[in-house]
Design a protein around this nucleic acid. Structure first.
Lengths: 136, 136
DNA sequence: CTTGACCCTCCAGCTGCTGGAAGGCCTAGA
DNA sequence: TCTAGGCCTTCCAGCAGCTGGAGGGTCAAG
């Protein structure tokens, strides 16, 4: 694999992570500080792009930056134990299940209220009444 | 209804909205600046508590502060049209449906990967491989 | 040689709070 | 009367995870 030198913009378009976000990741230490060219431009290679893609996919799956950092560590560690990765993944699934259930409950509450609301020019609407007086 | 004067702490415990959050709501203009006693303490009454409860319930239903502001406006407007309220509610439902579907997809992706991961001391784990190479 | 597209750093802001510092006030007990 | 504590006040900072902009430097094309 030839190690072509990529600018931050090129690394961005190849990885899907915007330049600003790449700099941010560097700033918070998620990725190592990039090499610099003589003009102080950051220089990347395909490995960096790969890492950025890894990060982006993990982020898309809803892993927090802290979790992504952990995953990156496991990813880079050849002696990695799949137990740790699985633990992170299952924790994320549990969290998602909790969140989904919560959103569903809220969704149904609002949908019920909306159904009982005329939705015309008349002022009667149980949504506001509910918000006003519902004893939770 | 007697208009007992309540301190911010009392208003907080009666409404369920913490003092800091009440001050914050005042700061961003969600609620009107509170009257002040001679010692500069904020003074509230039952009406204010009612409003805070309204806000809290709307927040629990996941309405953003902007939406809450709109709901408050409609709530206070006697000539309010239920159409506007319903529109807000349905928009929220649609947004929730979108979010729920998204989280479900993510959840299933991670759960699938976790299932195929040994979860022991062995290094093989498709989760990392997927993050590494999955062409999205 | 100029124009425009990059790149750099630094600072501010987004949402919705929350914590803490530094100070004022008020009540109760010793 | 003093003091301890628990309120209250303001202001500043920080959480996550970026994103936008200002004010500059650099570079390649025409």
């Amino acid at each position: 694999m030839r190690m072509e030198v990529l600018s931050i913009g090129e690394a961005a378009s190849r990885s899907g992570v915007p330049p600003k976000t790449i700099r941010y990741y560097e700033e918070i230490g998620l990725i190592a500080p990039a090499e610099r060219l003589e003009n102080r431009y950051r220089a990347y290679d395909e490995n960096d792009v790969q890492t950025l893609r890894f990060i982006q996919r993990a982020r898309r799956l809803g892993f927090s930056l802290k979790e992504v950092a952990a995953l990156l560590g496991l990813y880079r560690n050849r002696r990695r134990a799949s137990k740790d990765v699985k633990r992170l993944a299952l924790a994320r699934v549990a969290e998602l299940d909790r969140k989904i259930a919560e959103l569903k409950a809220i969704r149904n509450t609002i949908a019920d209220l909306a159904e009982r609301c005329h939705g015309d020019h008349r002022p009667e609407c149980p949504i506001l009444d509910e918000l006003e007086s519902h004893a939770h």
